[in-house]
Write a protein that binds this DNA or RNA. Structure first.
Lengths: 116, 116
DNA sequence: CGGGATCCAAATTGATACTG
DNA sequence: CAGTATCAATTTGGATCCCG
């Protein structure tokens, strides 16, 4: 009701830019998956149904470079062991994300795809 | 902390599907713009910087068909007067959306684009 | 196992021109 | 004014093959 609307509608607005980066299907799902704790590449691939190796790698790297995810190599030998974990910053997304998920859960009939 | 993670990671999960539909840059911005009240096509185009007429029309129609937005034609004469407004359902997005925006505002340094 | 490199098909977008 | 139609230009995604 008393929401103050910032000028996030401006292209230069940093809030809008952050928002645009978050508004991604895979990012949201990955963050969600990672809330359960650090996980490996193959693990995430299995958990996040539908994601391909390429997209997974790309998304993780983007998120890492945005400071949301941390990548740790545990072994250097060829059978590499790599884990991804949310950073402190990434974890702060839990609450707002939960709010969205709660909404999506509460309004299952909302975004039904109506045949044109 | 005590967040129960639903299996939104499954492709068939309706919550995930709703989420995927919401996770769109333009949708988020449009909803935000529309929180200020019903607005016209040209008005929205001006407010939501960077959106093109085509994408605006498409996004509005998608949101309309998802039950988030309502379209009302006020005049039938050639210089048409069309207004778009959030539906009751659409308005319920205000809170979760505000949570995300608040996050984005609080973490301006978060999603900085680091030159590769 | 993790992921870089390619090649290619498919989906998005941008720019214009046109209509009720 | 609002919106459709079209076509070219990107972007994005999927499928493979390969390497440390």
């Amino acid at each position: 009701m008393t929401l103050t609307i910032p000028d996030i509608l401006e292209e230069r607005c940093t809030t809008r830019q952050a928002l645009e980066r978050l508004a991604s299907k895979w990012r949201v799902l990955l963050i969600y998956a990672l809330l359960a704790g650090p996980q490996r590449h193959a693990e995430l691939r299995r958990r996040v149904a539908g994601i391909t190796q390429k997209v997974l790698t790309e998304t993780l790297r983007d998120m890492e470079h945005d400071g949301l995810v941390e990548r740790q190599v545990l072994k250097q030998t060829p059978p590499q062991h790599v884990e991804y974990a949310l950073t402190t910053l990434g974890k702060t997304l839990q609450e707002p994300l939960a709010a969205i998920c709660a909404w999506a859960t509460e309004h299952p009939a909302g975004l039904h795809r109506v045949a044109s």
